[in-house]
């Protein structure tokens, strides 16, 4: 018990003094997860909207597949990306394995299905209400996509948040493709895993507090903005 409270005090000390090591790890984690979410948004929003609006053979199968991808195990994604990027792999020449870029790719693969699947649902629901009016004004599915994404913007924020939650919390994929190399690819989650196994609870606890704090802060900020915007527009 004393160990734990001592670790807690040390953790708070690390936080309050902006410990160099801790700041670096937090910075890299945010950079990787935010980049992955940004990529997932760029791909997932239009793909999700297109799946909602276009009818084509195999569409239902694709939707089921996409929904299933939301539950992809991170370690499996890590393994696949590892195989692709390893020296012997098809993309080995790029030399990306054990770099932050590899981690961004792996997390983007995890997050894109979440953003796309939730977007599809939101846009499909909105299209039920909008389709006659849009078609009457001469908007086909393709030209309606930007307007629908814009009108669904408050709900889509939740989809993006869900994606960020997934990215920032996962450890398996970044561990495999990043390698948890000190000062290079060490993120909050991989550092926590390592420090706990080493018995250094202080840094692990400190990072854990930051991780939860970031998650809370982002969710609180988004919730507030969403509430205000919805009151103003919906």
């Amino acid at each position: 018990m004393n160990d734990i409270s001592a670790a807690f005090v040390t953790a708070l000390h690390l936080l309050v003094t902006f410990d160099q090591n801790l700041v670096e790890i937090v910075g890299l984690s945010l950079r990787v997860s935010l980049s992955a979410v940004a990529l997932a948004v760029v791909i997932g929003l239009p793909v999700g909207a297109a799946l909602a609006l276009f009818k084509f053979p195999g569409r239902n199968g694709l939707i089921v597949f996409l929904n299933a991808l939301m539950g992809l195990p991170p370690v499996v994604v890590g393994l696949v990306v590892y195989l692709l990027l390893s020296r012997a792999g098809p993309l080995g020449v790029l030399g990306l394995l054990f770099t932050p870029t590899a981690m961004i790719i792996a997390q983007a693969i995890l997050v894109t299905p979440i953003v796309a699947a939730l977007t599809r649902q939101v846009v499909a629901d909105l299209w039920v209400e909008y389709s006659e009016q849009m078609r009457s004004m001469g908007a086909g599915p393709l030209s309606a996509i930007p307007a629908l994404l814009y009108d669904a913007r408050f709900t889509l924020v939740t989809a993006v948040l869900a994606g960020f939650g997934r990215a920032s919390a996962e450890v398996g994929a970044v561990m495999i493709v990043g390698g948890n190399i000190d000062h290079v690819t060490r993120t909050m989650t991989t550092a926590i895993a390592l420090e706990v196994s080493k018995g250094d609870l202080a840094l692990a606890l400190g990072l854990g507090i930051v991780l939860i704090g970031i998650s809370l802060a982002i969710n609180a900020a988004t919730y507030t903005v969403k509430q205000r915007a919805e009151a103003a527009w919906a």
Binding site: E129, Y130, E132, Q133, S136, M137, G138, A147, Y150, D151, R153, W233, A234
Partner: peptide
């Protein structure tokens, strides 16, 4: 020509965009 461009329709419940 697209005849739809020369028509409009007003519905019982107007669908307005969130703008």
């Amino acid at each position: 020509a697209d005849p739809l461009k020369h028509q409009a329709m007003v519905f019982q419940r107007p669908v307005l965009l969130r703008r």
